[in-house]
């Protein structure tokens, strides 16, 4: 409930036109409807993001400089399979923009991505953002062709049991581990 209030307050601060009816009930409804619209916009935009590229990774830091061991593990696994060309989104990016007072969530802009991601800083506050989108409590998160694959544990196990090679094949990506195996035969 606290997060709802906090997010609502954030939406209100963002300059949304708010109709304030006389009854207290009505007021609550108006602000939460506004909040739900903003959340829905972010969820829709995340839907577009994961469809846009074959391989999408939401992580802490960047592939060149991962900021967390689990995110690093995902980067290393993809690297081992020769997957270098993927879209990565840093959930820690631009934290100073998180509290930007003029973020309008009607149309998704780069500022809105920060709004979507900055919620990941606070575990309690995951009503919107990529955690809610994937219904997954942790970062990193990996998508193949718009489908949620899993986090670090799942990728690691897919790597170990050979599923990764198969899943990449479905994406039209030939794992470099497979190539290496062929050459050694």
């Amino acid at each position: 409930m606290n997060s709802l209030i906090r997010n609502t307050a954030r939406c209100l601060r963002s300059g949304a036109a708010v109709y304030i009816p006389r009854q207290a009930d009505g007021r609550v409804w108006t602000s939460s409807a506004r909040f739900l619209c903003a959340a829905a916009d972010i969820q829709k935009a995340l839907g577009d993001i994961v469809q846009k590229d074959k391989v999408v990774v939401f992580m802490k830091g960047t592939p060149a400089q991962p900021m967390c061991g689990f995110s690093n593990a995902v980067v290393q696994i993809l690297r081992m399979h020769g997957v270098d060309d993927y879209a990565s989104y840093n959930v820690l990016e631009d934290s100073e923009l998180r509290e930007a007072p003029n973020v309008t969530l009607v149309k998704m802009t780069s500022l809105d991505w920060n709004a979507a991601f900055s919620n990941q800083h606070n575990n309690k506050d995951n009503f919107f953002g990529v955690k809610a989108f994937s219904n997954w409590p942790t970062i990193p998160q990996v998508y193949f062709s718009g489908e949620f694959v899993g986090g670090c544990d799942i990728l690691l196990q897919m790597h170990q049991n050979g599923d990764m090679v198969e899943e990449l094949k479905k994406l039209g990506i030939s794992s470099s581990l497979l190539e290496a195996e062929k050459e050694s035969k």
Binding site: N123, K124, N126, N135, W136, P137, T138, F148, V149, G150, G151, D153, I154, Q157, M158
Partner: peptide, 19 residues
């Protein structure tokens, strides 16, 4: 694997907010 992990996540949904 994903379904299994989701079962565990759902079971510990409240706890995972703190972890």
């Amino acid at each position: 694997l994903l379904q299994r992990h989701r079962l565990v996540n759902t079971c510990l949904a409240e706890e995972l907010k703190e972890i």
